[in-house]
Design a binder for these strands. Structure first.
Length: 272
DNA sequence: AACGCATACAACCGCCAAAAT
DNA sequence: AATTTTGGCGGTTGTATGCGT
C-alpha cells in the first residue's frame, strides 16, 4: 500500500531500479494478467516475467502477489481453531520461522501466518501473561526457567530401534528433554537444522544427539512427533537461540542416523 | 454525520544464500 | 574461483476498514 513517494526515506537502492514502476495494491486486471500468464507460460524467471506478461510491476512484486494471493492452493480467510492451535505449537517449537510454519499448514502462506500471529495470537498470549516470543510467563516470578539452558522434564518413551547410531544398541530410551531445537538462525532453510535431545536410559540421563539434520523429511518427522504430543506441549521446555560448535561434543550420536533408517517409527505409536 | 483511534492485512524493504554465469 | 543474479525470508509499514464517541 505504499506509494512511490513514501519510500524516499531509505537511502538504499530499492529492489526494482526501474523508476516509475507501479507499486501498491494490485488491481483485478493485473491479477488476471499475472494469473493467466503463469497458467500459460509457467512461472519461469520472476525478473523477466513482468515484461513478458505485460505488467508494469517488478518481478519481486509479481512473485509476492502470486505466492500470497493468486496461487490456486492458497486458502485465505478465517483461521480455524485447529489451525490456530497448530500455529501456536509450531511457533513455540520454531519461533518466527514463518515460512517453515506455513509449510506445515496447508493453504496458508508465511505472510498470512505472520500477520495472524502479530495481530491476534501475540496479543492473546500477552493478555494471558505469556511472552509471545518465548512462550514463557511474562512475570519472572512465575517462570521457573529463566535459565535458557534449563532442560525439560518430559518423560516420553520412544523406540529408537536397534540400529547403528542408536544409543547402546538398545531398543528403548526415554526422551526426557528437548532443547536446541532451533539453533542456527541464519541457515534454517539450509542444512543447519540442529536438534539436541536428552534421553534417559538405564537410570542415567544423557545427551543423545546434537547434530545437523540435513534431511527435510527426517526433520519434518521429528517436528510432527513433537507438535502432536499434547503432554510435551504442556510442560516447560526451552529452546536455545544460539549454540556454538565448540559446545557440541563430537561423539554424540546423530539421532538423524537412527531416524533416517526407520522413519516410519516416528509416530505417536511409539509414545506411551 | 464526522471525527479519531485501533485493527487487519497487503505489500514493501533489506538481507542473505543458492544458483547461474 | 570470483562475481552477478535470483529467489526467498523475516521485519516493517501504509492504508483500508471497523468501531466508539
Amino acid at each position: 500500500m505504499r506509494t512511490p513517494s513514501s519510500s524516499s526515506a531509505t537511502s538504499k537502492t530499492p529492489c526494482c531500479s526501474k523508476v516509475g514502476i507501479k507499486r501498491g495494491p494490485w488491481t483485478p486486471k493485473e491479477d488476471e494478467i499475472l494469473a493467466n500468464y503463469i497458467k500459460r507460460e509457467e512461472q519461469g524467471n520472476w525478473r523477466t516475467l513482468p515484461k513478458s506478461a505485460g505488467l508494469d510491476r517488478c518481478g519481486k512484486s509479481c512473485r509476492l502477489r502470486w505466492m500470497n494471493y493468486l496461487r490456486p492452493c492458497v486458502k485465505r480467510g478465517h483461521i480455524a481453531p485447529d489451525e490456530k492451535d497448530l500455529i501456536l505449537r509450531l511457533h513455540r517449537l520454531l519461533g518466527n520461522r514463518w515460512a517453515l510454519i506455513a509449510r506445515r499448514i496447508p493453504g496458508r502462506t508465511d505472510n498470512e501466518i505472520k500477520n495472524y500471529w502479530n495481530t491476534h495470537l501475540s496479543k492473546k498470549l500477552i493478555n494471558q501473561g505469556i511472552d509471545p516470543r518465548t512462550h514463557k510467563p511474562l512475570n519472572p516470578n512465575i517462570s521457573n526457567s529463566s535459565n535458557l539452558n534449563i532442560r525439560s522434564a518430559t518423560e516420553k518413551e520412544m523406540d529408537f530401534g536397534s540400529r547403528p547410531g542408536a544409543i547402546d544398541q538398545n531398543d528403548h530410551a526415554k526422551l526426557v528433554g528437548c532443547e536446541n531445537l532451533v539453533v542456527n538462525n541464519s541457515d534454517w532453510n539450509g542444512s543447519n537444522r540442529e536438534i539436541k535431545m536428552m534421553v534417559q536410559q538405564g537410570g542415567q540421563e544423557k545427551e543423545y544427539c546434537d547434530k545437523k539434520c540435513e534431511d527435510e523429511d527426517i526433520f519434518s518427522s521429528f517436528i510432527d512427533l513433537l507438535i502432536n504430543d499434547n503432554e510435551f506441549f504442556n510442560q516447560d521446555f526451552t529452546m536455545l537461540e544460539e549454540s556454538s560448535e565448540a559446545d557440541q561434543p563430537s561423539c554424540w550420536n546423530p539421532i538423524m542416523d537412527a531416524f533416517g533408517e526407520e522413519q516410519h517409527n516416528l509416530t505417536r505409536d511409539h509414545l506411551p
